[in-house]
Structures are given as C-alpha cells and as structure tokens.
Design a protein around this nucleic acid. Structure first.
Length: 425
RNA sequence: GGAGAGAUGGCAGAGUGGUCGAAUGCGGCGGUCUUGAAAACCGUUGUACCGUGAGGUACCGGGGGUUCGAAUCCCUCUCUCUCCGCCA
C-alpha cells in the first residue's frame, strides 16, 4: 500500500508513474485527496471537542472531591451536547477512514523507472540469454513421458488421491525433489540466509500484509472452518515474521530462506500449458527474503538476482533473465526480474524464479519499520523476495535436457545430494 | 471436544472509577567514576494522527455499552495458557 501522505503530496507523480502499469489512478488519487482533507478538518474539530470534554471531566472530578456537588452537577449539564457531537465526529471519522483505506488498497505499487512500458508477456525485456540449447535425440520425450518411463512422477495417482495438479513423486523422482530442496537451502545458507520452516497456513492479517488479500483471495485455498489460507508462497509467512516490528538499522538487512510447499488454485487455467509439471496446484519452492534499508534495496535486488543466476548456472540449465514490463509485473512489486529455463523437449521457456523489490509497499501494510540512529521517527523498510528456486519446472527442464540413450544424467552439483548420477531403468 | 485462568509499554509485572500514557524491576540509550571494562550512581527511554509552533487527540487484545469521567464496571468476539480427553 502506498503511503497516504506521499499520495497527498505527490498526486501527479503517482498518476504518472502508474501509467507504466497501465493503471489509471487519477480518479482514485483525486478521491483520496478529497477524503484526506475532510479527515484532517474533522480531526481538528473533533480533537478540540474531546479536549474540552476531558477538561470538564477533570474539573468535575475535582469539584466532587471538594464536596461542591451543585457545581459539579451544573458542569455535567454542559457535557451532553459535547458528547453527542463527539459521538457523531467519531462515526464520521471512521467512515472517512474506511473509505480512504478502501481506495488505498486499490492502488498498485509504483513501478521503478527502469520498468519497460508494455501490455503483457511479449513486452518483457530480455536482459540476457545464457547457455547452449541442448540438441536432443530424434526420439526425445517431454518430461511427463520421461516421468512415466522411469517411474518418477505419477500424475494419475495424484488425481486419484486429490485431483489434477497434485502429482505424486516417487522413487528417484522423490529423491530428486529432496536433493534439489537441500541443494537450494544449502546455497542460500552459504549466502547468509537464515533458514526458517514456516507454517503452511496463515491467517488473514498475514495474507493482507504481503498483499494477497483482499484482492487475490481467489489464488489461495481458503480453510473456511478456521479462516486460514494455504500459502501460495513462503514469502507470505516469512515476510510476515517482520509484521508490526521496529528493527534496528544496524542489523539490516535481515535475510531468510525457507523451503515450503506452495498451494495455488490458479482458477481458470487449463490446456496444453498445464501439461505435466508446467503448472500445479501444489509444488515445492525454496524462497529467499530480505528486509533492507531503502538506500540499499536495489543493490540487494542485484545480489539476489546473482544468487539465482548462480543456481541455474550450477544446474547447467540454459536460462534467460527478463525484466518484467508494466503489464506483467505484479500489483505489489516495483521491479521484478524473472528467470526462465529452457525445457528442450517442449521447446519452451519456463519461469522458475521471480525476484522482486517491493520497496515500502508491503512494509507499509506490515508496519515493518526500522529505527535509524539520530532519527526519531521509525522508517519503513524495503522488502524483497525471490524464488531460489521453484522445483517443478526445474525438474521438467532437467529431465528433458539431460535425457540420453543411457538415461537421464544428474548435474554434477546435485550428485552429492541425490546419491546417484543417472536415472535409468 | 470438556473445564478453568488470563490478555497492560522491548520483556517481566503492579494498577478495580478521576491527579494513569500508566508504578516498579530488567533491558536499551546518554552521562559520572575508571588506563579500559565491570559494579555503583544520575538522567533518559512507546506508537499513530492533527497542528508552522506551543500543544492537542487516540491507543492497556478487537468491537460495543454504562458514566461527567473507564486499563479498572457490563456485554460480545478473538487469541493465549493450564488441566482432562483424543492424537503424530
């Protein structure tokens, strides 16, 4: 959520910047401005009335103690009108505040100046493409057929147990999953991220804090009985660790990594793009999160991009890095880099990571601040996160790209984690 | 699922109708002392909003009520803890 005062002081700037996200903010900003003025005006008179009320009450207290009952009772009579007014002020004030908040949560984060203009996927800027596209054998198989051939993943069994999009990994398929998770966590730890194991269900406040609620509840599975949500990413619980806290500037940045299962309803998606591992309702992911000083957050974003780059390179996967355009970037992000790996049998680029700087947008919702030496008022921190990495599409690319006549070769870095070098019969 | 207890500042913990934004202790910060440190002593130490400022207002889990006045009384919701039951 954008800062109210900032909008009030820079309405034109907000409207201008949001054009890059193809968002016309003029009406909302105008309404916010009007409401804000009403709110301040009302607070002025309301506070004055309350101040008067407080002083009369104090006076009455004193009079009673002195035994001057008549005077006290006379004073009481003056309060009834004041009381009515205050009541009305409070009702009006709450109403205005509610309206302001409803408008505020509708405004997306301001995009960074480097975000390209654009409507959708095809307008994303390809920053670099690295690695050789492997030349596969004539009879190369897509990963869902490889998975079946080597008994790695059972999609039908998942349908039986749960439904489409909930595959069962088994044998070396399951071991490969575990190996990847361990590899990613080890790399994150090496890079200084503290590992956490968060809950997989979160409450409403957490969903609001990172921006999934109120608008995107359709994306999450909702346990209505207890009003809890299955996390769509570990970003939600991990970032919410820092909800309602004031950190010490000298401890910044805070770095956390977490492995978690992720759950996405992804309502309405179907067709050939969802074959195999390309799009699932439940998948595994290792996430990295940083809480940063505003002056350092873009430096840190680069650092996180480098970390993810290291992962795909170690896995020897051809990849490319995209700078998301205004039409494709999320509601909450200011700048996002996507990583895609090439899945050679499908002949497709698959998104495996999204690394974003949210600046103070989430922090404002989270009330996540830090205290700087010599500055009285706490300052909103910047939050960043990235997938490092999401498993299914990595698995898809690994299976497809590394298939040979002898079987599927495991990349060197993973062998210590899998305990095997090849997947064959 | 059953029974009971509780929710107060970074933490611990007082406070049962007015002078309480809130005692006290710990922690934090600043200082005195010291070659340095510890100890001791002194001072300081919440957040948000409004106001150029002086200052004002709100906040003792959330919401509502009683009252001139509520951390304190009443209602309600949520959460936490303890015991019992069940259970990885």
């Amino acid at each position: 959520m954008l800062n109210l005062k900032f909008i009030q002081d820079n309405p034109e700037l907000v409207i201008e910047k949001l054009k890059r996200k193809n968002f016309d903010a003029s009406e909302i900003v105008g309404n916010i401005s009007d409401l804000y003025r009403q709110k301040n005006k009302l607070q002025g008179v309301a506070d004055q009335a309350k101040a008067e009320m407080n002083s009369i009450s104090k006076e009455i207290g004193l009079l009673f103690r002195e035994g001057k009952k008549d005077k006290a009772n006379a004073a009481k009579e003056r309060t009834s009108e004041l009381k009515e007014n205050i009541k009305q002020f409070d009702v009006d004030f709450a109403e205005i505040e509610k309206n302001v908040n409803e408008l505020l949560v509708q405004l997306p984060n301001l995009p960074h100046d480097s975000v390209p203009f654009g409507k959708g996927e095809k307008d994303n800027e390809i920053l670099k493409t690295v690695g050789e596209i492997p030349k596969l054998l004539e009879n190369a198989l897509p990963h869902w057929e490889l998975a079946q051939k080597y008994n790695l993943i059972d999609f039908e069994l998942g349908v039986k147990l749960t439904g489409a999009g909930f595959p069962v990994y088994r044998g070396k398929g399951a071991q490969l999953q575990r190996a990847l998770i361990n590899f990613f966590l080890a790399e994150a730890s090496k890079a200084g991220y503290e590992e956490v194991q968060p809950p997989l269900l979160v409450n409403e406040a957490s969903g609001f804090g990172t921006g999934q609620l109120p608008d995107k509840e359709g994306q999450m599975y909702h346990v209505t009985e207890d009003n809890l949500y299955l996390i769509p990413t570990a970003e939600v619980p991990v970032t919410n660790i820092y909800r309602d806290v004031i950190l010490d500037a000298k401890n910044l940045p805070y770095k956390n990594t977490a492995y978690s299962a992720c759950f996405r309803r992804e309502a309405g998606s179907y067709g050939k793009d969802v074959r195999g591992l390309n799009r699932l309702h439940q998948f595994d992911k290792v996430e990295i999160v940083q809480i940063a000083h505003p002056k350092k957050s873009y430096e840190i974003l680069d650092e996180m991009v480098k970390h993810v780059t290291g992962l795909v390179e170690k896995l020897e996967l051809p990849y490319r890095i995209l700078r998301l355009c205004g039409g494709d970037i999320s509601f909450t992000a200011a700048l996002t880099f996507d990583f895609e790996v090439y899945s050679a049998a499908q002949k497709k680029w698959l998104e495996v990571s999204s690394v974003s700087n949210f600046e103070a947008f989430q922090a404002n919702r989270l009330k996540l601040r830090f205290r700087e030496e010599g500055v009285k008022k706490p300052i909103l921190a910047h939050t960043l996160n990235g997938s490092a990495l999401a498993l299914p599409r990595i698995v898809a690319a690994l299976l497809e790209n590394n298939q040979t006549a002898e079987g599927i070769k495991i990349p060197k870095v993973l062998i210590p984690y899998t305990g095997f070098e090849i997947i064959n019969q």
